[in-house]
Amino acid sequence: MSGAGARRRPLTLFVHGYMLLLALVLGVGGAGIMAVWAGLGPAPLIDRIFGRSAMATVVSAGWSPLAVEGDNPRGFVILLPEVEVRADGDEGTLPLRGLEPRVAVAGEAEPPPPLAVGAEVAVTLDGAGQGGSARLVQWRGRVLLGIVIGLVPLLLSFAVLRLLVKMRRGLRAEADKTEAAPVVRRRIGG
């Protein structure tokens, strides 16, 4: 019994060391993926959670056209939103990010502006002073999906660590049991 246990030992050590390594790799990788995705996109989640959020008034709203080239018989044109807002209590205007573009047909009536002038929107402000921008407060499906994908390896790493702790505890309990066993057997046999 003890001979078999000694022979199995290096393999057990290898498996346990590997589990620790696996948990570290999955944990660091998952947390890194979550951190990167939280900072991506026109309305980063990290700004939404930690940044200064404020109400802002729309000063001007309109579309900026981007021509579509190539085979374009229907005359499609991409309309990029161009909205300026003034944060409540601030002086200058800031460009608003995170609005949806539209695809329109040239020559037809332009769609109404993305936001009405004078409307109040919740924004996060980044880059205080000149050159900054206001970012519309919103949840982005793609960013959230990226964070969920990062969450999976992170949770798996916790599961691996928990399993590792349980296995080490089980080994210790087994070692205690094998020492106690001969005494019990002698009593029954005697």
Partner: peptide, 11 residues
């Protein structure tokens, strides 16, 4: 066209 427009507007 919609995906291309979304990329340009977002990034």
């Amino acid at each position: 066209l919609d995906t291309a427009a979304a990329f340009v507007a977002d990034q």
